[in-house]
Design a protein around this nucleic acid. Structure first.
Lengths: 331, 331
DNA sequence: GCTGGCAGTCGATGATACCGAGTGCCAGCC
DNA sequence: GGCTGGCACTCGGTATCATCGACTGCCAGC
């Protein structure tokens, strides 16, 4: 598609623009590019690269800036998986060696880690709960007509739903329901709950059904938890205050973020550039799913300007997703 | 301290500066102020106001800008508690009427509500867990040597701690410990856990002690949960990108936020202006505690530039804190 | 087909002048 | 004595203009 030299020139432009954020002129390219040609030749090639949509010229007498298509080519050509520098690698190691305790806190910390590694905002989407195995079910009375359904999952997460009961329900009845639910739900996954057999006691059956309904409803509607780390970094990555506002605004809306990341779930380590995704056309996103016990569980990602450091971001996301998955598989 | 006219002039300067963000000149004040005097007189007064530290002049031949001290006077003089406009009031009503379900989600939504009402970033600090009564204690095995301690509190919150056990522990033993813990801890508060009597079984006692230790440790060290809403609004409230970064950066650090808000816990509805607090001298904070069942439980606050709309923010924080407390007291 | 040379473009930078909002001060008036 | 109108003065912001320089496109020649 692009001959060797054009590709080299495009690469040089992208690299320099990522570094300097200034339009890149032909002489810079001639100096930097692997191919040794004169600036005039570079200019001729750049005209064509512009016609083909890889580059863009803000105005005559200015250098060139990569378009989204240009970044796309650059990223696709990044055969080198890129690896983290030594200190970053060690940080990741140390982080996951020390990582411990509640899964939510760990995911939050992971987003923070990723943000620090890349210097961009980072997002971690928690493992969905559909596939998690139920370890324990319990109904706890909070008020005469309110009970809390607490479900402990095998990965250490705890789901809870508030149940509004039709009538005052004593602790004995709740205990009976808890026993009934425990007997039949423990060992199943939230995604595929078995139907409960009748107990003979209609009141117990009614509350049990309520609990199961609440559980399925919660599993369906609740969006996966999103952890955003390093949001303040968007303020330096984008210097226009309006861009900052837009990005932050999107990051506040969990479901949008989930949508942004999750449609790349089965594509592995992926980059989405500017206009390739729906909101945030000024941003690029580097995403990867992480696998727990062989199954894709959640995603992690980094969000930066289109002129982000893709190499570094890709390396960081790859490493962290792998280690996070491994860590979570250990249980 | 300030005579009537000086106060009126200062008020006019503050009000206009809050609105326009431009240094305010004497003629504007003369036009707007309640007192009808000539610009020349206003100038004479302003010179004194500046000498006394209420105003500041960016440069000769510019208008005046309030200092933090000026804002302080203005805020203290706000006898009018200020009430929300009708639509906002209805929004709050509607919100708490509909509010329902898990407490965490509700607090998060509350921060969002407060942000929308004021158009500044808002923070909600959840009720501390020390005073909450334990409704249920349960140990759930996750792995041979790992168990999850799940504690349900009377306010619907769920605390959990991961326990690392010394030796493989079967479900029967965990059940025994759960029974033991339940028998003695349910009904106590996390802040004042009773000491457990021995059961006679050393293994059970050991695990139980481990659980209690984890619980006290968690209650001590875990910072109160912080919910930040409307963070993107700092991007419009501050137009310097560096200021935005600083504010966001602070908002990311939960414990700093808690510190910022919590030292005003027993002072009721409070405003802290610029340099009056430690970090974020460019910001003002409007805070109020909310009370659950008569006891101060947590705090809510709004964070904006020193030239924020104090009236509106005060009104919003007052109303929301009151209704939030009431809502949480209902259980 | 590559290159050096060259004229041309156009934003960025800097000097200059000007404008106007705002001040401090003062003399006069109530 | 205090308020006011008048006045000279300051000084940042804006507009104008020239210059500069980093580019480009094009062309003739190697």
């Amino acid at each position: 598609m692009l001959d060797e030299r054009k590709a080299a020139i495009l690469r040089a432009v992208v690299e320099e623009y990522i570094e300097t954020a200034q339009p890149v002129g032909s002489s810079h390219v001639a100096r930097a590019s692997g191919v040794q040609v004169s600036p005039a030749t570079v200019r001729n090639e750049m005209v064509q690269l512009e016609q083909e949509g890889y580059l863009h010229q803000p105005h005559t007498s200015a250098g060139r800036v990569p378009t989204d298509k240009g970044y796309r080519f650059f990223v696709d050509a990044l055969t080198d998986p890129g690896s983290l520098d030594a200190t970053s690698g060690q940080r990741v190691q140390a982080f996951f060696r020390r990582a411990h305790g509640a899964i939510e806190q760990m995911l939050q910390d992971t987003s923070q880690l990723l943000a620090e590694l890349t210097d961009y905002a980072a997002v971690v989407v928690g493992p969905g709960h559909e596939d998690a195995v139920i370890r324990s079910v319990q109904l706890v009375g909070l008020a005469p007509r309110t009970a809390l359904l607490v479900v402990v999952l095998s990965n250490g997460a705890v789901d809870k739903s508030v149940l509004d009961l039709d009538e005052d329900t004593g602790d004995e009845r709740l205990a009976a329901v808890t026993a009934h639910l425990s007997a039949h739900l423990v060992g199943s996954t939230l995604g595929e709950l078995p139907t409960l057999p009748a107990t003979g006691d209609p009141a117990t059956d009614r509350v049990s059904a309520l609990a199961v309904d609440a559980l399925t409803a919660a599993t369906r509607t609740e969006p996966d938890e999103v952890y955003v780390g390093g949001a303040s970094r968007v303020a330096v990555a984008f210097d226009a205050v309006e861009s900052v506002r837009q990005v932050l605004s999107v990051l506040e809306q969990q479901y949008v973020v989930v949508g942004l990341l999750s449609d790349v779930l089965d594509r592995g380590l992926t980059v989405s550039i500017g206009s390739e995704h729906q909101p945030l056309s000024e941003c690029s996103i580097v995403v990867a799913p992480y696998q727990v016990e062989g199954e894709p569980a959640g995603t992690i990602g980094v969000l930066g300007p289109t002129r982000m450091n893709y190499q570094q971001a890709l390396a960081a996301v790859a490493v962290v997703s792998r280690r996070l998955g491994r860590r979570l598989s250990e249980g």
